[in-house]
Simulated scan of single mutants.
Amino acid sequence: MASTLGSRSTTDLSPHTQRHAPLHAYDLGLLIMRLAVGVLLVGHGTQKLFGWFGGGGLEGTGQFFELSGYTAGKTMALIAGLTETLGGLGLTLGLLTPLAGAAVVGTMINAMTVNSGGGFFMMDQNGGMELDILVAATAAGLALAGPGRIAADRFLPVLRSHRVVYGVSAVVLGAVTAGLVLLFVRN
């Protein structure tokens, strides 16, 4: 049963009701997920781009990409760094959340292929891909569910409607882009 706010139901999706309805636990839960994944991805991206937080910068990360079978390692380091940083910022702010989720999903699919040789669990000898799967699943879930009401997307009415269409399209875009990178850029 929907509670009411004045004469309007809180299930009413009008912008007026959305702005004045009380926050729910799911809004806070989505904010916590966005902040956790987004901030961590910004950190990983800036490691690649600038060498911050003990990262290799473009040079060191580019060498890693080449050793992992990617051609043009430095270019791939730039692309991965920008994708993680901008995708992470998008998730953190709840800005263009479906596209931010797509960027993260695509990056994590590539990370899974790099880390798949180490087994599944991170405790395996050479690392693993369990964390990559968790981050990709969280990003896909946020792309589908939306960022909640404590987000910049709240002010973009087009993203409040057709959420499932945009979310599914974004996840597919991220997966297809990752597949193309793996097909044409990785040996």
Rank of each mutant, 00 (worst) to 15 (best):
A170G: 07
L13E: 14
K48T: 07
S161A: 15
G128A: 02
T11S: 15
G57Y: 08
A103T: 14
G148P: 06
T97P: 06
M122G: 15
A145G: 07
G56R: 03
A2C: 13
L35P: 04
L134P: 13
M76P: 04
H20M: 14
I150P: 00
L134T: 15
L91R: 04
L31Y: 10
L41M: 14
V168H: 01
L30S: 11
E59A: 13
Y70S: 03
T10M: 13
R186V: 01
T85S: 12
T10V: 15
A103M: 15
H162I: 11
G141R: 04
Y166L: 11
S9I: 12
P15W: 10
W52C: 01
R163E: 09
T10W: 12
L82Q: 10
V171R: 01
V181I: 10
P157Y: 00
F120Y: 06
N126H: 05
P147W: 01
M129N: 10
A178I: 08
R154M: 12
G62V: 03
A136T: 10
G6V: 12
G38Q: 06
T138Y: 09
A140G: 02
F65D: 01
L142P: 08
I150K: 01
Q125C: 06
E130M: 05
V105K: 01
P22V: 09
N115R: 14
L5G: 05
V185N: 10
A80V: 10
G174F: 00
H44Q: 09
R154H: 12
V39P: 05
G56M: 01
Q63K: 14
L156A: 11
G141L: 06
L159V: 09
S116C: 11
G127Y: 02
A36H: 06
L183H: 12
V105P: 05
F121Q: 11
Q63A: 14
F64P: 02
M33L: 15
L142W: 08
E66N: 02
G56S: 04
E59N: 10
Y70N: 00
L99I: 09
H20F: 15
G90H: 05
G45H: 02
A152M: 09
G81P: 01
A103V: 12
G119E: 01
A175Y: 00
G55A: 03
L23W: 12
R8F: 14
R163A: 11
D12P: 11
L67Y: 00
L134Q: 13
N126C: 04
G101Q: 04
L89S: 07
V172E: 01
L182N: 02
A103Y: 08
L159K: 03
T97Y: 07
T4K: 13
G51H: 04
R186K: 07
L156G: 06
A21H: 08
T97L: 09
T138F: 10
G43R: 07
T10F: 12
A72M: 14
N126E: 07
L41T: 11
V181R: 02
V105M: 03
M123Q: 15
L99G: 07
N187E: 09
G146Q: 00
